[in-house]
């Protein structure tokens, strides 16, 4: 038990910390407060409780018990309980307050703000942050595609490109998907025949049409640039309409689910 569980504790810690210095700042702040904090309430709640939690988190029997009952993948969430931001901020304010002159206070503030910026990672720099295209906070093209294929009060099944499957049912749950996000995630295991067939550089139209029929899938949405072995019209799928760079194909031979 010991080696494996110790590695899991280390992994949970490293996964949480990443390249940030905040956890290090937190430990430094705890040490500082341990020696300097005089208020009893703050010592008990912020300092001693934090030390207790950190020790508990690193304790192999505790980690073993928690991971056995709740699963390994969530052990890192124990670190959520460390008051990292609160302790660092409290310590920073104390450091500023200790300075005698206004100039020293301002200098300390500048230094600490710079440290916080340098030691962390700016959230909005993340590539997944983009200007919202609408108040749904979903890609506009997905909304337009959904609006075109949805049928009032009726379920309709469609195959969307893999980059869209995450968003379709957030917008409209009457649209059923031939394959969803679970097929893109390795930990769900296995692959989906249609998802697999749609990954080809040149689509085997006959095979795709066959799978769509078997799955009673009325619509297929493809990128306009997708190359096809033969036109879909040969197998009963007509172009329904185009939206931005996407083409919607409709199964004319079996329109009903």
């Amino acid at each position: 038990m010991e080696t494996g569980i110790i590695q899991q504790i280390i992994d949970a810690y490293h996964n949480y910390r990443g390249s940030s210095y905040y956890v290090l700042f937190f430990f430094c702040a705890l040490m500082f407060l341990l020696f300097t904090e005089k208020k009893k309430t703050i010592r008990l709640i912020l300092v001693y409780s934090s030390v207790f939690l950190v020790v508990l988190f690193m304790l192999p029997p505790f980690a073993w018990l928690v991971t056995k009952i709740l699963g390994e993948e969530i052990y890192y969430r124990t670190i959520w309980l460390f008051p990292i931001g609160i302790t660092i901020s409290y310590c920073a304010v104390k450091l500023i307050s200790r300075q005698q002159s206004r100039a020293k206070k301002v200098s300390m503030w500048v230094l600490l703000v710079a440290l916080c910026i340098y030691g962390g990672a700016f959230t909005y720099q993340h590539s997944d942050f983009t200007k919202a295209e609408n108040s749904y906070h979903l890609p506009q093209v997905v909304i337009e595609l959904c609006d075109l294929i949805k049928e009032d009060g009726m379920n309709v099944k469609a195959a969307f490109p893999r980059e869209m499957v995450t968003y379709v049912r957030q917008y409209d749950s009457t649209i059923l998907l031939a394959f969803g996000r679970e097929k893109l995630l390795p930990w769900f295991g296995g692959d989906h025949e249609l998802h697999y067939a749609l990954q080809d550089k040149v689509l085997d139209t006959k095979n795709v049409a066959r799978i769509l029929r078997e799955q009673e899938c009325k619509y297929l949405i493809l990128n306009e640039e997708q190359k096809l072995l033969e036109p879909f019209s040969q197998y009963g799928f007509q172009i329904f309409t185009r939206v931005q760079n996407y083409v919607i194909y409709l199964d004319k031979e079996k329109p009903e689910l």
């Binding site: 905040y22 931001g85 660092i88 916080c116 990672a121 959230t123 909005y124």
Partner: peptide, 29 residues
Amino acid sequence: EQALFLGFIALLQMFGNSTIYTNETFFLT
């Protein structure tokens, strides 16, 4: 001190996106 504390908290929230697991990442994303 209250204002400074809240300022540092807000700053740490905004720069706490070191990994996808942090409280700060969950908070703002």
